[in-house]
């Protein structure tokens, strides 16, 4: 089990999907907020890979090969980290 400090540092290194860079692949690490169920239903699950395709008022992402448009409010609730290539 990793040290609590390591955990904390790890969670600090996470960014929200709305902040993430367009055109890159990310690993979904955590969902937090009231829209979690809505997000999970459309395939945003922890450990899955997501590619951000476009920024804007509504973002466009690709999860498991499906394109999904989601509001930036929802994207704020998806915490991601850069996917290891």
């Amino acid at each position: 089990m990793s040290h609590p400090l390591v955990q904390e540092l790890k969670s600090d290194s996470l960014q929200s999907l709305s902040q993430a860079k367009v055109g890159c692949d990310f690993q979904i690490r955590r969902l937090e907020g009231p829209g979690c169920d809505q997000l999970r239903n459309l395939g945003f699950c922890e450990s899955l890979q997501v590619r951000k395709l476009a920024n804007g008022r509504n973002l466009i992402c690709s999860v498991c090969g499906t394109r999904v448009a989601l509001s930036s409010d929802l994207a704020d609730q998806v915490k991601v980290e850069a996917a290891s290539s």
């Binding site: 997000l39 459309l42 989601l70």
Partner: peptide
């Protein structure tokens, strides 16, 4: 009462 957000699948 429960806030809904815009979330839409863009089918191929």
């Amino acid at each position: 009462d429960i806030q809904s957000h815009f979330l839409l699948e863009l089918p191929p």
